[in-house]
Amino acid sequence: MNRSVTIALGIMLTVVLSMAGLVLIPNWQFREMEQHKDDDGNLWPVRLEGAEALGRAEYVSLGCIYCHTQQVRPAGFGADIDRGWGMRRTVPRDYLFDKPHQLGTMRTGPDLANAGARQPSRDWHLLHLYDPVITSPGSTMPPHRFLFEKITVPDRVPERAIRLPDNSGWILPTSRAEHLYAYLRSLDKSYELPEAPQ
């Protein structure tokens, strides 16, 4: 077969080797990775459920990853910790349940690995999602007004609605916006792991 088989085997061998080296071996090294039990008996990281899990799906669906990372680089490499994006670097165990992973490669906006720890306010997050320049003047983040209902009649404002700071009315978050907030609030890696002291 004029060496075709030999050539094909050589070609496939190269890519199989790199797959083994870059994916299968690290995956095998992670085989014993599991949740860490702290002194109070809590397990970290937490497996997301309910609204938080639904919110994560919204995060994926809306493509937040294209402007936001979820990883804190170690002290001395970049300024992630000095910028307050986390009290410690993130480690493999933090991402035990992440599927799909959302580590990200672009910081048009700030890192969100600890978004909920840095900014727990529901009002802030929902106003920011509705129109980012309300809370962050000059931001280039796209407004997500389509996740809200705007109310202008003062006598029919539900409890969950948030007043707009310019007094033009109230915004009523849809359940999708509430889920997204629940997920952002859950982004909190301030627990300690043995391999990642603060």
Partner: peptide, 8 residues
């Protein structure tokens, strides 16, 4: 080693 992460 799998646990070795940082530059130092």
């Amino acid at each position: 080693q799998v646990g070795v992460l940082t530059d130092e």
